[in-house]
Amino acid sequence: MHNAVQMDAAATPILQVEGLDIEYRSAAQASVAARDVAFSIGRGEVFGLVGESGSGKSTVLRSIIGLLHHKARVVGGAIRVAGQEVTRLNSAALAELRRRHVAMIFQDPLRALNPVMTIGAQLAEVMEAAGLRDRAEIHRRIVGALQDVGLADPEIRMRAYPHELSGGQRQRVAIAAALIRSPELILADEPTTALDVTIQDQILRLLYDLCRDKGMSVLLVTHDLGVVAEVCDRVGVLYAGRLVETGTVAQVLSAPSHPYTAALLASMPRKGERQARLRVIPGRPPESTIDGCPFAPRCAHALPACSAIPPVLAVHGADRASACWRHDELRERLAEEASVG
């Protein structure tokens, strides 16, 4: 009986997002930040949410632990963390959720850390909030956590203030703070965007290894399809607040099923490809809600129907979904388009 319950918990995805609608409201108008977003993250899985600025990727991530901007509201859909619906939780329950299940890693570690507290004091605070009282035990676990994230001399680093560390070291501390309570789900919002490529490379590998070792799930928000390829198992592509496709990283990057993904891949400069003109996506994302497919005005494959009726995210094949009316007939052309670059 006990075993059956455990197996059940292991089978429930750590995160389920269904039909999520988020709006930003100002005095004059309401604008859509996310519309009908649906994806799930399995236990121990690294899921990438990729999109350009304004696509709604950070808004979706923040909605999961109630960190939305005060003008933003979840107006529809469901978010379940470990099976528990979180969109209507009060602030005490949200705090409990953040304490027990979910941790977040931000883009700018300097702003995420308290500038007037030492690294050690901040990590101790995290554990005290979780109910740990034994000073020696707290100290031992901080040293362990700092070692885990590859900081040399943890006993000395504990006494340092954030400004005394480099950007990469600060992000290591932020990761230590996120992982120290062994949360089930890590939300990482562009965690390496502010770092140099060599440090990004180290931090991504560290995050990946630690989460694999501890069986934690990760939602990684990024604008960089290269980062997705390096660390994610599955990926969702957001455009103008809508999920345009989801699938495994291998599927989405080598055989995209949405024209936006294909065009994005084709517009990236790649290693070893020289001097040729880049293929670009004409125009820019829509600033207000449009009736049909939000990508239709920029899409090379759009039909008149695309601008009239928004396509729904339709499941096709195992673990693969696409919001394009023409994904079936375009399949081969999109794969070709994406690989030409």
Partner: peptide, 12 residues
């Protein structure tokens, strides 16, 4: 160190 959008290249 530059991430490339090519799946299956993960280094240890």
């Amino acid at each position: 160190a530059v991430p490339q959008p090519i799946p299956g290249r993960r280094r240890v």
